[in-house]
Computed example of a mutant assay.
Amino acid sequence: MALAIQLTDDAMKELQDTMIASATKAFKLAAKQEALPFWMKKGEAKIYANVDDKTLTKFIKDGLRVSVKDGVQRISKKSIDDYYAVHEI
């Protein structure tokens, strides 16, 4: 059974503005993430994972895979996607 909700014009406008702002933020984040290279520096990886430095470090200690070659560390988009997939509830 569908529930009909009555909103004032002002409330409807505020709801629409909130939804548009939320969608705009999500699309901007998605575009920023998509523009990142497949193999990322830690700064890029935290943008892709949408976390701060401390959380990325915690993820790495918890098993997020990091590739190291000649002391250069890179994290792949696939590693982050896999890490999140393993930790889904």
Rank of each mutant, 00 (worst) to 15 (best):
D53I: 13
E88R: 08
L15C: 05
S67K: 12
I20D: 08
V68K: 09
G43I: 03
D17P: 05
D82N: 09
K42H: 09
V66I: 09
A30S: 05
F27A: 15
S76R: 03
I60A: 03
Q33S: 05
I47Y: 01
D70T: 10
K54Y: 08
K54T: 10
D82H: 04
S22C: 15
A23L: 13
A31S: 11
A45N: 01
R65T: 08
A30F: 07
T18R: 11
L56W: 00
K32Q: 14
Y84W: 05
E14A: 15
T57V: 14
S76N: 05
L36C: 03
K13F: 09
D52P: 08
V66P: 01
K58F: 05
F59Q: 01
L3K: 11
D10C: 07
V68S: 11
M1H: 10
K78Y: 10
A26I: 15
K78G: 13
I47A: 02
D17G: 12
K25I: 07
T55D: 11
A85M: 04
A85L: 06
K25V: 09
K25D: 07
H87I: 05
E14G: 09
A49V: 02
D52V: 12
A35C: 08
V86Y: 07
L36W: 01
D53T: 13
N50K: 08
Q16D: 12
Y84T: 08
F27D: 14
H87D: 05
L36A: 02
A85D: 06
I80N: 00
T24W: 06
K78Q: 10
V86N: 11
K58Y: 07
F27Q: 13
L15F: 04
Y84A: 08
Q73T: 13
Y48D: 01
F27C: 13
L7N: 06
V68M: 11
I75F: 00
M19Q: 15
S67V: 14
D70V: 09
G71V: 08
K41W: 09
V68R: 07
L7V: 06
M40F: 02
G71C: 06
M12D: 08
K46I: 02
W39D: 05
I75L: 02
S22H: 11
I75W: 00
I89Q: 15
T18P: 10
E44W: 01
K58L: 12
S76K: 03
Q16W: 11
E34W: 12
L29W: 08
